[in-house]
Every structure is written in C-alpha cells, then in structure tokens.
Amino acid sequence: MRTINEIMAIAGGAWQLLRMRVVYVLILCVLVLIGSAYRYDVLSLGQHKALMVDVSLMLNTLAAILVAISVTFEISRELREGVASTLLSKPLGRTHYLIGKLVGISIAGIVITGLITIGFCIIFNAAFEDAGIGQTMLLGHLLIMASVIPMSALAVLFSVLVPESISAIVTVIVIWFAHSTPALDKIKILYGGILPDLNLFNLKAEAAYNVAGSISWMYLVLALAWGIIYSVFATSLASLVFGYRDLK
C-alpha cells in the first residue's frame, strides 16, 4: 500500500501536464482539423468520411507521441536541475520514481487522447448523422489510447539510457521505427524483441473503411496486455540502468 502511495505521489506530479493551458489549445486545434475534413468532399471524390476517420486517428496518434515525448523532457529536466535528487532523498526507490513517472504520463496521455476520441465521436456524429460510430472506428481510437503506455515506457527508458541532448530525438526515431514494423519486416533483427511492435495499435485502414466485425474487443484486451508487458520490460531495463547512475 505504501509503495502504491509513493508511486501515485510521483505520478501526481507527472500529470501536471493536464493543468497546462497549451494542452487544451492543442486538443482544440486537433478537433478543428478533424472537423475541417468534412469540407473535403469535393477534393476527395466523396471519400471525406473515410478521410475524417483517418485524419482523426493520425492526429490522435501524434498527440499520443507528443505526450510520451514530454516525459523524456520531464525526466531529463528533473535530473539536470536536481529535482529528482530532492525527491529521491525521500523514502522513494529509484524504480518507484520511474514507475511513478510512467503511470503519471500514461494517465495524462490516456486523458488527452480520450478527449480527442470523444471530440471526434461528437464531430463525426454531427457530420454524418446516418453513419454512426463503427466498432472498428472506436477500437482504433481506444488502441491509440492504449499505445500511450508502451510509448511512455520507451520514453522513460531512453530518458535514463542516453544523454539528455539526444534522448527526445532517439525516442522519436525509435517510436517511428516501432510504428513501421510492417515496412521493416525484412530487417526484423533491427527491432525484433527489443522495440515494441506499435503497428499492433494501428487500425487506420480497417477503421477508415469501417470493416465492422473484423476486429474484436478481445484484440484490444490482448494488445493492451502486450503493451503493459512490454512496458514492464522497458521500465525494468530503465531501472537497472538508473540504479547505477550518479545523480546531480
């Protein structure tokens, strides 16, 4: 119980992101962009419905990546300025500190991508009254919300593994690789077993063309379970490295 309290105390600091006004301005911009896809009916030869779904999934994925990257900056800044030293001088293990950051940023990411999902559903329903939100469409957004967890774990890992100046760039490159697993299928050795297969969380084509019934809810549960297991692996690796690191 005490361990959970410690982790949640650190997580509480990490989801301060949700108190920043700029986050809500970005969410508003994303929703405006999703809504504007409705006006592309002429340009897209009547494919604007599929385009709106595709744009919403793409922007939601970008938002999830941005949230995950923010933890790289957060941990690096705390290590550089000595905030982490102040916290770690309390009865708090280094592993708990990293888990707290992961939990905090994952919750913030899930809330932000969740707000975008809700906004999309409202806009889509208003734009295409007869269409309705398909199961695959909803699953696509829920999977993006779930993908925040392994992406945040990657960000936590690289924020302690590589120098501060390149940690964010390395994290972005790794996330890009992890999203491109089908394209990199022939060079699996690059990512197999180390990088997560974030393509598991990508249902853009299925969702855009509303291939209803082809993806089950069980798929979401299994993908989420895989994301959590991968996060445990990445955080354990980060903790191992962080345990031997000298702090400012």
Binding site: G13, Q16, E78, E81, G82, V83, S85, T86, S89, K90, P91, L92
Partner: peptide, 15 residues
C-alpha cells in the same frame, strides 16, 4: 532510513 532524514540539497530545485 530516509523516513527519519531531512535533506536540503545544494541549490534546491522543484517542479
């Protein structure tokens, strides 16, 4: 042991 220790670092910084 840290439950019974108070620590002020050199140049303290907080969130």
């Amino acid at each position: 042991a840290k439950r019974s220790i108070g620590f002020l670092p050199d140049a303290p910084a907080f969130s």
